[in-house]
Amino acid sequence: MSVVAVVAVAAVGGALGAALGGYLSLGVLGCLVVVGQLLAYADVALPAAVPTPLGYTVWFGPHVLFGGGVAAAAYAVRRGYMDEGYRYHPAKDVTTPLSAHPKALAVGGAFGVLGGVFAWGYATLGVPFDPITAAVVLSAFAHRVLLGYPLVGEVRSGLLDMSPYERGERREPMTDGGRVVESNDRPAESSSGVPNVTTRFVVEPFAPWQADWRSALALGVVVGLPASVLASLTASALLAFGLAAAALLGFVVREEVPVCYHVALASGMAVLALGPADATAATFAASVSLPVAVVVGTVGGVVVAVFGELLQRVFYAHAETHFDAPFAAVFLFGLCLGLLDIAGVATLPF
Rank of each mutant, 00 (worst) to 15 (best):
G268W: 08
M269T: 00
M269K: 02
M269S: 00
M269L: 10
M269V: 00
A270N: 01
A270F: 09
A270K: 04
A270E: 01
A270D: 00
V271H: 04
V271K: 04
L272M: 13
L272C: 07
L272I: 12
L272H: 04
L272S: 04
L272E: 03
L272Q: 03
A273R: 08
A273S: 15
A273T: 08
A273N: 10
A273K: 10
A273V: 06
A273W: 07
A273D: 02
L274H: 09
L274I: 11
L274C: 12
L274F: 12
L274R: 13
G275A: 11
G275N: 03
G275K: 04
G275W: 01
P276T: 09
P276L: 10
P276Q: 13
P276E: 14
P276Y: 01
P276I: 00
P276R: 12
P276C: 08
P276A: 15
A277G: 12
A277L: 12
D278Y: 11
D278W: 06
D278I: 02
D278Q: 14
D278S: 13
D278C: 03
A279D: 14
A279L: 15
A279I: 13
T280A: 06
T280W: 06
T280M: 06
T280R: 03
T280H: 03
T280C: 08
T280P: 05
A281P: 13
A282V: 14
A282P: 08
A282R: 12
A282L: 12
T283M: 10
T283W: 08
T283D: 07
F284H: 04
F284L: 14
F284P: 00
F284T: 00
A285W: 01
A285N: 03
A285I: 03
A285C: 03
A285R: 10
A285G: 09
A286C: 06
A286P: 06
A286K: 06
A286H: 03
A286N: 07
A286S: 12
S287E: 15
S287P: 09
S287M: 10
S287W: 09
V288E: 06
V288H: 14
V288M: 14
S289E: 13
S289K: 11
S289I: 11
S289L: 12
S289T: 15
S289A: 14
S289D: 15
S289G: 15
L290S: 09
L290W: 14
L290H: 11
L290I: 14
L290N: 09
L290A: 13
P291L: 02
P291Q: 02
P291W: 01
P291H: 05
P291E: 01
P291M: 06
P291R: 03
V292P: 00
V292L: 13
V292Y: 02
V292R: 14
V292F: 00
V292Q: 11
V292N: 03
V294D: 01
V294W: 02
V295C: 11
V295P: 14
V296R: 10
V296F: 10
V296G: 10
G297T: 06
G297K: 08
G297V: 06
T298R: 10
V299P: 04
V299G: 02
V299T: 00
V299M: 02
V299L: 12
G300V: 03
G300K: 06
G300L: 05
G300C: 07
G300D: 05
G300N: 07
G300I: 07
G300M: 07
G300E: 05
